[in-house]
Design a binder for these strands. Sequence first.
DNA 1: CGGGACATTGAAACGTCTCAAACGATGTGG
DNA 2: CCACATCGTTTGAGACGTTTCAATGTCCCG
Lengths: 211, 211
Amino acid sequence: MQLLTPRQQHELGRISTELRRPARSKIFDQEAVADAIFIVERGVVKSFRDLPSGKRRVMAFLFPGDVFGLAEGGHYVNSTQAVTDSSICRIDRDALIETLRRDRELEVQFLCKVTHELRELQRQQIVVTRRDAPGRIAMFLRMLDQQRRRDGNAIDIPMSRSDIAQYLSLSPEAVSRATASLEHSGIVSFPSLHTANVLNRARFERLAAAV
Amino acid sequence: MQLLTPRQQHELGRISTELRRPARSKIFDQEAVADAIFIVERGVVKSFRDLPSGKRRVMAFLFPGDVFGLAEGGHYVNSTQAVTDSSICRIDRDALIETLRRDRELEVQFLCKVTHELRELQRQQIVVTRRDAPGRIAMFLRMLDQQRRRDGNAIDIPMSRSDIAQYLSLSPEAVSRATASLEHSGIVSFPSLHTANVLNRARFERLAAAV
DNA sequence: CGGGACATTGAAACGTCTCAAACGATGTGG
DNA sequence: CCACATCGTTTGAGACGTTTCAATGTCCCG
């Protein structure tokens, strides 16, 4: 999603500041006053919500080009945190609104971004409602694969197992058992916690598509 | 969500046509060419997706004021169908884009609508990931309650049990058992399939909030 | 290199899903 | 207007898979 023209990047550059955040550092908290929106430049960010029960739901993983900072009534609805060392473009809310007012094309881009997010969320809805943990993991890995291709069949997994669990709405144990299951089936291997190799692409796709 | 000014309603009126659809009639199919977007005027509409497995997921119930017709690559991503007899405002896609190009405020309204949908979808994400069926039903009833208040504690349930099941990602049997459970607990009564009465508001809210 | 958080593995419990059958509501044709 | 056929809903019993709790093993940061 690199939709911005050089001119637009320049326009945004004037009203934005670049933040550098190390892994695991917070960007903003849910409920906080929303005075800016953000764009991931480099790295991976997670957007999550703490529920009254104490559980935590990861609503989305954000990759370079993704916009975040959704507000409701002037306050952020989610907390966000860097998953890896990241560069983040922070855009002042008021200045952005002013700029959008002048740059029609830019506003259209934002509408597209939000619409895109909506579709992604609908996809995740499908994923989360699957019964079987291995299937959910397969769909998740496929998402990562499409997001950031590495060499050959290797998939980079920047987030932790518990992040994945909170994103897929599974217990950490279920994630562990599901990855073990995929490995025993010979569909995927996990050389490390942060790498996956698709060994049998056909079975992998079939499993991921079996919704 | 009645955000449109009289002038905007007039503008849209020029490029829109009003459809009347009886209950259970289709509005458009997923995959169809997306040449229009729609706004619910009266009645209830469901937006759903048929999955390869044959299962059906209801992505959203749409009430008066809600916009639908999300497209991707020029095709609709969901099918839509009237739940009750409905009046629907159909707006030609090309004409809308043209109008948005001239009416900045209207474009902002659309951005707001989409953002609102995004928040709603995040809420449903929370609902769907609950383990317990009675809790999910309680949250669903609360949503209906907030959406369309009737007299006193009565909640109008326009859709069928199986629609609810497909929306909450439960089996129809689970929905039935969950409503029976709520009734036995004395929290909610169901005088008919299309009405619910909250008998114990405190316990009801507590259950719905226990996410 | 040590400490603490994270990840895996095992065993039991819980709750939904599935299958099957009976019941009820809905809408159509006689 | 009623009878009937059809679909949707309810109820029951068993199987399946995740959750939970507990303990061990591993990774990673300071």
